[in-house]
Nucleic acid binder design. Structure first.
Lengths: 234, 234
DNA sequence: CGCAAACTTGATGTTGCTCAAGCTAGGTGG
DNA sequence: CCACCTAGCTTGAGCAACATCAAGTTTGCG
């Protein structure tokens, strides 16, 4: 998907955020190897075990990444929205499955050429290191959540994460994923997620406009719950 | 800790593994900013929230990294042995506490200078990216474990991880950490870890020479358990 | 309007936690 | 050298949080 109109970029439609702040030359380099790809809800981008041929960057929409146990138990390791990279951390095979939750737009980069840019494009390595470091921090927070938080604390933390993700200007949080996705992300069951949301609603901490739109009625309380500061309460 | 004897390295005692394969010049660069540091069992290297002034590399021994909830619940996010880096993934403050489990030898690098090398030393960024990627994969495996595995599956996985860490030639696995550490790593309690080890012993899967030395009597079975392939059994 | 998927709610069950003793082993001092 | 002491480990009994199983209800789409 090359265009001939723009001199400044080999790829006029290029929307990758990975090169933000890297300068014109670097951006051109990166844009030159990118291909835009779309994915409709529920479709699989790649599966655990597939040959890791591409690196992707999310431009729009939300994906879920997950791992499975042989008997079908699923752990979602993350929800990815605009600006996130995926497929980078692997040698030859993807180590998790990636599926679209909403309509998703991606930039696809051939893995080999993408990785080569680490040594060729100044500042690129540093950028990737930052991205990966942030992911690692998020993963560590998630370990604390999965290993040591109660159901209420998990759900509260989740709502706050979702609230922080987007502009978060108002107190309305949009939840694009199903209860099953949330459950598999938090190490709970669908029923427990549902019941916990109901309890939070009954306690006036949140309100549910619809299944996928949560209003924060008492963000302070939610914050305390998520942080694990209210051991016994609720 | 500079020595004058060696021309090839600014630092004859330097034992950092991070620069393995990076060539003489790069190694000198890295060695030049390193200081060797020792830590006795139980001592804290740094705490969650401390200013992140240094990056460390483990040369010998084992550390535990953990996060705490306000009421003292602890989640160990990893055990670090020789070759592992720590303190890299932070902007200004450490996001977890690092404590020595055994006698530990470290290489300390001033953070600012270490990070600067990413842009200056060829191949260094790539190396760091590899290290961080591997950590991220391990973190994702751990999320699957914490969120979806049963107690037996968690303990079996843990034993296998420990077995793979060292030479692992024989079937004897040395466990330097206490049951409490194991519990806080697996999202269990001390009692459950102990009971589970007892059950594995009674089933002939392992034998306990002492509290800190496990013999693998049926590695195949342990493998199946850890992978979650024996849903109901044991 | 009808259907299926997603969500909620209730009743019951089970895993792993809590609380409470004992036990073991390694280190210290008499 | 042995007795003690403590930290760590094991074991047991009872319990609670969350899972499971089973209906209903709501929602969105064809």
């Amino acid at each position: 998907m090359y265009t001939h109109s723009a001199v400044t970029s080999a790829n006029a439609d290029f929307e990758g955020l990975i090169c933000k702040g890297l300068g014109q030359r670097a951006t051109s380099h990166i844009a030159a190897i990118s291909v835009v790809q779309k994915l409709s809800p529920g479709r699989t981008l790649f599966s655990e075990g597939d040959a890791a041929e591409n690196v992707y960057e999310v431009v729009r929409g939300t994906l879920r990444l997950y791992k499975l146990l042989p008997d079908g138990r699923r752990q979602i390791t993350g929800f990815l929205s605009a600006g996130h990279l995926l497929g980078l951390a692997h040698e030859d095979c993807y180590l998790y499955t990636a599926e679209a939750i909403t309509e998703v737009t991606l930039c696809r980069y051939p893995r080999a050429r993408f990785v080569r840019m680490v040594d060729e494009v100044p500042g690129f390595a540093r950028r990737l290191l930052d991205v990966t470091s942030n992911e690692l921090c998020a993963a560590q927070d998630q370990m604390l959540l999965l290993g040591r938080k109660s159901a209420v604390e998990k759900v509260a933390s989740f709502i706050l994460t979702m609230a922080g993700r987007r502009g978060g200007q108002r107190s309305e949080v949009h939840i694009p994923m199903t209860r099953a996705d949330i459950a598999d992300y938090l190490g709970l069951t669908v029923e427990t997620v549902s019941r916990t949301l109901t309890r939070l609603r009954q306690d006036g901490v949140i309100a549910l406009q619809s299944a996928c739109c949560i209003e924060l009625r008492n963000p302070g309380r939610l914050e305390e719950l998520g942080a694990g500061e209210l051991a016994g309460d609720l």
